[in-house]
Design a protein around this nucleic acid. Structure first.
Length: 599
DNA sequence: CTAGGGTTAG
């Protein structure tokens, strides 16, 4: 019996169909091909429909894909997976995961492609619960040991914040199954979850037993960003070298990670150099250099970069505008900042959100325009945690400007929240303490103790020959930190500083005047809050001892640097004729010749 | 038909 033309058609049309669809990246040409196919009267085989389905999904058109899918008399695992992947990449991950259940119910067995797609949809949702269900299904179906599925699950657990599960998944993979993507995924899990030290350590493992796996741009960008997070300049520089050796310097993502790393390690000049080498900076490239410039207190310079960006036709996003506001805030450009806040919708089509308002309120507060700050805070009409953050920041400003009346108002607002308010309460306590109301300060502390609220301990660290040394206030120094020599040096410095009119103390216990690093053991009921030597001071002392003259001493801190230490650092830079860069929670201080870049 | 990277106030 001769083959009917209808049966022959798909076989002959298939290569043509694939060719046409491969070049079709927009809805118009995919539907044109679809129409042509229908006109030819070719019977829609499952394979050709799947190709069409995938083409619709590639150009992000899930609606026609869905219509096609619904009209298919037969659907195989490829049809289901193609549609699932279409939903996931079109920003509808929930619908994608729902398809997994539907396909099982309709009697089609998922394969490795299906499970990895489903896992990646759960990653987009950052939903570990749903992800765990997908993991269990994959396990039962025998696909959890497939290396692509396992890697997708590593990524899913990481994006959902379950770092331990991600690592367990990674560890369960046989060493031979771990390829460059598996390593890159695990590294990015650490980097994205602020576990820079773990990322750096895992990278070292990859280097020592990953044989022939040369680090690619995915790995380099993750590890560079891990260095940025923990301020490891030494490793960061070494990675920059690898980037150049492996020819990844033109990769935009790697470049951004380097800009960010240098800026967070206190090397603004290097950040700028890397940025200037980017041929066509993206929004993110511009944003990262604007944020870096802002953190360095170069507000005008940040604004110039911003207008440069707009002139070049690069559309700012919400993060960019936050960076620009931040720049205004830290350089006292209040009017420009407010104008930006109020014109961002009309000029750039971006609605100000909680972070923009908080930044603007902080800007007003910093400038001492506290009444205006209150007004804006009320105008913002935020809710929940956003509102708490905004009022806590305003409370800080009131305290910094010694406006106890307004601080009480803001403090009342803050205490209405039943959430973790440790930071805000410390600020409140210090507001009282600096206003000389030690009893009220002590009352806040005992209230905190009763509610068993604790604050993260402050710590500072420094990198010596690629080894980090971490110091805590009032706690034994790390091994090799020469604690006695450090204390001796600090005492000597204090004497010299006295001669220059310094009134504070750096060597012994004293009244706390900063909103951080409270060592409760030193707390003396009713007499004010006492602390030992601040961690940044210990770290600087150690740095002065071991880092040769002429080299910049780089100190990192997990909280904000306190005013007392800030003053002392300025004097010490003059006395010792040294330069230091301190990176604290949110900015840089470059000390040299008795002054600081932050003014 | 499948897995991975960068910027975010206080």
């Amino acid at each position: 019996m001769a083959a009917t033309p209808k049966a022959a058609a798909p076989a002959t049309l298939m290569p043509l169909l694939i060719h046409l669809l491969r070049g079709a990246s927009d809805l118009a040409s995919v539907s044109a091909t679809h129409a042509k196919l229908l006109k030819l009267g070719a019977d829609a085989s499952v394979a050709s429909s799947n190709h069409l389905l995938a083409a619709y999904c590639r150009c992000g058109s899930t609606a026609p894909a869905r219509r096609l899918f619904d009209g298919m008399p037969d659907r195989n695992v490829v049809s289901w997976t193609a549609l699932m992947s279409g939903y996931a990449s079109a920003g509808r991950p929930r619908a994608a995961v729902a398809l997994l259940r539907a396909m099982v119910l309709s009697g089609v067995a998922p394969n490795a492609f299906t499970f990895s797609t489903a896992a990646s949809a759960c990653a987009r949702l950052a939903d570990a619960g749903l992800g765990r269900q997908v993991h269990a299904c994959a396990e039962v179906a025998g696909y959890a040991c497939d290396n692509v599925v396992a890697t997708a699950l590593v990524d899913m657990y990481g994006k959902a914040g379950s770092v331990r599960d991600a690592r367990a998944m990674f560890d369960a993979m046989p060493a031979t199954a771990r390829n460059i993507v598996s390593w890159a995924s695990m590294l990015s899990v650490y980097a994205q979850n602020a576990l820079g030290h773990d990322a750096i350590q895992l990278f070292a493992e990859l280097r020592s037993n990953g044989e022939d796996m040369a680090p690619n741009h995915f790995i380099l960008s993750s590890v560079v960003s891990a260095c940025a997070g923990v301020g490891r300049l030494g490793i960061g520089r070494c990675l920059h070298g690898m980037v150049l050796r492996h020819g990844h310097e033109d990769n935009d993502v790697v470049a951004v990670a380097l800009v960010d790393m240098y800026s967070k390690c206190g090397c603004y000049e290097y950040s700028k150099k890397v940025f200037d080498n980017i041929k066509q900076p993206s929004v993110i490239s511009y944003t990262s250099i604007i944020v870096a410039t802002a953190k360095y207190g170069l507000g005008r310079c940040a604004l110039a970069l911003f207008s440069d960006m707009v002139d070049r036709g690069v559309q700012p996003n919400s993060v960019t505008l936050l960076g620009v506001l931040h720049a205004c805030s830290h350089s006292g450009l209040v009017d420009i900042g407010l104008h930006l806040l109020h014109s961002m919708r009309s000029k750039y089509g971006i609605d100000p959100c909680a972070s923009h308002y908080t930044c603007a309120v902080d800007m007003l507060g910093r400038a001492g325009q506290l009444e205006e700050a209150f007004e804006l805070a009320n105008e913002a009409r935020l809710d929940g945690n956003d509102d708490l953050l905004l009022w806590s920041s305003l409370l800080s400003s009131c305290r910094n400007h010694k406006r106890l009346d307004l601080a009480t108002k803001a403090g009342k607002k803050v205490s209405e929240f039943s959430q973790d308010v440790a930071g805000a309460l410390v600020v409140m306590s210090n507001a009282y303490a600096s206003a000389g109301q030690a009893d009220d300060a002590a009352a806040v502390w005992s209230n905190m103790r009763q509610r068993s609220i604790r604050k993260d301990p402050g710590c500072s660290w420094i990198e010596i020959k690629d080894v980090p040394y971490v110091f805590y206030a009032g706690v034994a120094s790390p091994a090799g930190a020469r604690a006695d020599d450090v204390m001796l040096l600090l005492d000597e410095l204090e004497t010299k500083m006295r001669e220059k009119g310094y009134k504070g103390r750096i060597g012994g216990a004293r009244v706390l005047d900063a909103d951080e690093e409270v060592d409760e053991d030193h707390h003396d009921e009713g007499k004010g809050v006492m602390v030992g030597v601040h961690s940044e001071m210990l770290t600087l002392g150690f740095g002065l001892l071991v880092i040769p003259k002429g080299m910049i001493i780089r100190v990192m801190k997990n909280l904000r640097m306190c005013c007392g230490c800030h003053e002392a650092f300025k004097l010490i830079s003059d006395i010792m004729e040294r330069e230091f860069v301190v990176r604290d929670l949110n900015r840089f201080h470059h000390f040299r010749r008795g002054s600081c870049s932050c003014n």
